[in-house]
């Protein structure tokens, strides 16, 4: 087995020619994507560069305060991202926080489980904690954003149906049962599809990375399987908590539908 082969800036520059080609196609066909493409490519390079330097710095420290700081920044970024992805947002920072925080908390809880299983020394070693937390939070973020968007969208479209059920004596949970079920399915679907396709259609990114780094493919697959289960768990916890939070925040203790708690749809 060959060892890890480092890349130089020249090789990266050569690879970037493909993005330039992509931009030229956009210009040639008038797709008007070249601007977004340039911004997205630049953002990607900058973000990954900064995060790499930050991780390198944190791995060199012995004080866990730096790890904690990174985790805090991730929490804020996750919640902001969930909120950004909503077409209709809940009003008030408390409601926003309650509905979006499951995305981060679910990832955090499952990361702690992962650390229990892997048992690094010390348990909070940033080389294990931060990448795993990132993967789990990233997946539960997508799920929570989807479930919130599905439920708030359906509630505003199906206001009359919800109120007809309430008028017949349904509780808010009964009136929302179909919408909640739809939201949970939508939120969980990407993870289920990802698990089913893993290894056949695509080789998961983490497993690819470990193989490129020289790890035995069987060991890499073991890690990937564990991470897949944890991703499924993190997404399930986040989606269920986010879904119930959305139903609660869209109704009140008198079992009324409160669409006045939603902002107008954004572009």
């Amino acid at each position: 087995m060959t060892a890890y082969i480092p890349l130089s800036v020249i090789e990266l520059a050569l690879a970037s020619i493909l993005v330039v080609a992509n931009g030229m196609i956009s210009v040639a066909y008038g797709l008007r994507l070249e601007r977004s493409l340039a911004v997205a490519s630049l953002r990607m390079v900058l973000q990954l560069g900064i995060v790499a330097l930050a991780l390198k710095f944190i791995f060199a420290q012995t004080n866990p305060v730096w790890t904690l700081l990174f985790v805090t920044i991730m929490a804020v970024a996750t919640i902001a991202e969930v909120i950004m992805r909503q077409e209709r947002r809940l009003k008030g920072w408390r409601a926003l926080l309650l509905s979006a925080s499951p995305a981060f908390l679910a990832g955090l809880v499952t990361t702690l489980i992962a650390l229990l299983l892997i048992q690094p020394q010390p348990w909070y070693a940033p080389r294990f904690l931060l990448p795993i937390l990132g993967m789990l939070v990233g997946n539960s973020l997508s799920g929570v954003a989807l479930v919130l968007d599905t439920i708030t969208g359906a509630a505003s479209r199906e206001r009359r149906v919800i109120e007809a059920r309430l008028a017949l004596g349904a509780t808010r949970h009964q009136a929302f049962e179909d919408i909640l079920r739809r939201g949970l399915r939508t939120g969980l679907m990407p993870v289920l599809n990802g698990m089913a396709a893993a290894g056949i259609v695509s080789l998961p990114g983490m497993m690819t990375g470990q193989i490129l780094a020289g790890v035995d493919p069987v060991e890499a697959a073991k890690y990937q399987i564990m991470i897949m289960f944890l991703i499924a768990g993190a997404t399930a916890i986040g989606v269920v908590a986010g879904g119930f939070a959305a139903v609660h925040l869209l109704t009140d203790e008198r079992h009324r539908l409160r669409l006045d708690r939603l902002t107008a749809p954004s572009e």
Binding site: E158, V161, E163, A164, L166, A167, L168, R254
Partner: peptide, 29 residues
Amino acid sequence: MRAPAWRRLVRYAATEPMWWTETARAAFP
């Protein structure tokens, strides 16, 4: 009383009837 109990006794019937199930029977209270 709890709001669902109140609405079982004080029944609002909207102008436009709403049906959310495949058959009407399933949407009866």
